[in-house]
Simulated scan of single mutants.
Amino acid sequence: MAGTSKWRRIILAAILAGFATSAPAHAELPEPVRAMIDAAIATGDEAKVRVVADLARATNPADIDEINAIVAVFEAKMVAKHEAEAKAKEEQIRTAGLFENWSGKGELGGFRATGNTNNTGLTASLTLDRQGIDWRHRFTGRVDYQRNSGVTTREQYLARYEPNVNVSDNFYVYALAQYERDQFQGFDARYAISGGMGYQALKSDAVQLSLKAGPAYRVTEFTDGRSESRIAGLVGIDFDWNLTERLKLTQDTNAVAETGGSAIAIIDSRNTSIDIITGLDAAIARKLKARFSYAVEYDSNPAPGAVQTDTLSRVTLIYDF
């Protein structure tokens, strides 16, 4: 009996050995595949890592779990890195001084005017922007100037400052102070202040749309010495549409997002002013672009001798800094 048990054990061991030989063994991830994934991870490019990992899974289906584990470690490190960078950026913004964290753009080119003047000349503008955690500050200045045979035939100045603060993801509160001077339209100075609510209706990489409205107060000093002060209302619309990576159409409220176009209306019982600028921006280099814009400036009750509507066609170069 003892001999029979011995032979049974030998036969059982042989059978088990045969199963072990015929069963497919799990192979480790091939070294060239691992090296390819490690090289993608070394770049820190998340999109590249995803592409390489997908190729590795497709060509090595038996090693999907190991590939997923490698990618999961990388993704966890990237999440931690992004969180640390966001925290550092927020802290830098909170502790920045008054003259820090400003960005802007300068614009220089020519214009063609019709209406109270019919001429061509030079146009220049400067926009400064400071983005905080909840607050944003924007300053815009613009000059259109032309002289002919020693005589000034167009001289228009605009300065505008607007702070706004977010109260939710889509709503914000704005304030606005604006100064204008255009003797050819019949006023030496025109001041306006306003405050109200704004709403971000659309916000995506391709299209942005925001609306705002509020009461306003305006003082106009005419060239004939008269002065008028009136309560008014302000309405504005901002619209940006990225047609392609290098081409953008703008039709925006100039007090909220001066990105090449503006449309703002100040309405009172005596005189309604509407400023509309439609622009088309074409990228030339990373910080340089060309702008083609058409502006309409309308006053329903202009000074004596002035017409209601002026238009300006501008061709300019813009440098971002």
Rank of each mutant, 00 (worst) to 15 (best):
Q156N: 11
F19Y: 14
E91R: 15
V219W: 11
A303R: 05
G260E: 06
R160M: 14
V143H: 10
W102L: 04
Q308V: 01
W241Y: 15
T117L: 05
S227I: 04
D275C: 03
V52N: 10
P304E: 06
M197K: 05
E91G: 07
D240S: 14
G18W: 06
W7T: 09
S229Y: 00
G195E: 01
A306H: 07
G260V: 03
D268L: 03
R218W: 00
G305L: 12
D129N: 13
Y319M: 02
A58Q: 13
I93V: 15
E228K: 14
S227F: 00
M1K: 09
P304C: 05
T244Y: 07
E245V: 02
D252S: 15
M78T: 08
G115M: 04
L288W: 01
Y298D: 07
G44Y: 07
D252P: 04
I318Y: 00
D188Y: 10
F99T: 12
A23M: 15
V315A: 15
Q200L: 12
L16N: 01
F171Q: 04
Y179Q: 05
Q251M: 15
G109W: 05
E100L: 07
V73A: 13
D182W: 00
A189T: 06
N119I: 08
G141L: 09
K203A: 11
Q92L: 10
G186D: 01
G110K: 03
K212I: 07
Q185M: 09
I93S: 10
R57F: 00
A72D: 14
R130Q: 04
I231L: 12
Y319F: 03
I193T: 14
V315I: 15
G305R: 12
M197D: 02
A124K: 02
V235S: 07
Y179E: 03
V256M: 15
A216G: 11
D65M: 03
L12T: 10
F171V: 09
V51T: 14
E297C: 00
F187Q: 02
G150S: 10
A285E: 07
E90V: 09
T114F: 07
D38M: 12
Y294R: 04
V315C: 09
S269P: 01
T114V: 10
F184N: 08
T259F: 05
L288T: 00
R130G: 01
R291E: 11
L16R: 08
E75H: 06
D45S: 15
E228Y: 13
V173Q: 08
Q208F: 12
I267K: 02
G44P: 05
A86F: 11
G260L: 05
P215D: 12
A257Q: 11
D268R: 04
M36H: 12
T311H: 15
D275H: 12
P304D: 08
R138S: 05
P304R: 05
Y199T: 08
L288F: 01
N119F: 00
K87M: 12
A80N: 13
Y179P: 01
A20K: 05
I266R: 07
E162K: 04
Y174G: 05
R218E: 10
S5E: 13
T250G: 11
V52A: 10
A290G: 15
Q200T: 11
V52Q: 09
A35C: 06
K105N: 01
G115E: 04
G104W: 03
L288I: 01
I274K: 02
E66P: 00
D45Y: 08
T21M: 11
L108D: 02
E85R: 08
A84Y: 03
V315S: 12
